[in-house]
Amino acid sequence: MSNKAIICQDLTKQFGAFKAVDHISFEVEQGEIFGFLGANGAGKTTAMRMLCGLSFPTSGKATVAGFDVYHQQEKIKANIGYMSQKFSLYENLTVTENIEFYGGVYGLSRTEIKKRGGDMIDMLGLSQSAKKLVGELPLGWKQKLSFSVAIFHRPKIVFLDEPTGGVDPLTRRQFWDLIYSAAADGITVFVTTHYMDEAEYCNRISIMVDGRVEALDTPTQLKHSFQAQTMDEVFYQLARRAQRTAD
């Protein structure tokens, strides 16, 4: 078994004749914060769903936490956390109830859930709102809670699909503090974002254009090779080559 968190070789997903993800290859190291960038419709979510065992690849190979995406999806699922692009905690359950449910589904004991859940709520500063329905929380809080629930069972890898979409700058900073502390605990972070300042926080980033990975390096190296001052410029240079119109 390799010590890479994710290995991806020519991974492809086709919807009919349309190649949403087109032969992407990359590797993610353990403990790394890997930024997965690309314009709307580039294929980020589609690629991520394959890696999480939510959808079958059309072709290519990939392992996540050492498990094969075709045959060992349930093993992958036990070892990862996933925060989807669409908010998907239960809005009609309270903060505590959501934590309890997901903790239980991932096989934690009630005592563990109680202890760790309490710590987590304190750390998020949600003690006042623990008994509130999640639907009543502001978006920034929801997203932070959602992330914390995704890593509550201490997965090896966490997949975050645009976790900070629509969130204010201050909360985004707090969110990234959470990501850093998860990475410090050894959790590999695979994150998509449309914010270039966030891209700078990543150890390495890949940029997808029309289903293909067109660039992959550290932010510093990327700026260097594209002779750009900012990540914005790098992204712009790549993204304008896109044929695909975002839908």
Binding site: C52, G53, L54, E74, K77, A78, I80, Y82, S84, K86, F87, S88, L89, Y90, E91, Y102, V105, Y106, G107
Partner: peptide, 13 residues
Amino acid sequence: EIGTIEQINVTPI
């Protein structure tokens, strides 16, 4: 529709 099933499907349930 609300997307919570995806969150369930990604667990080892």
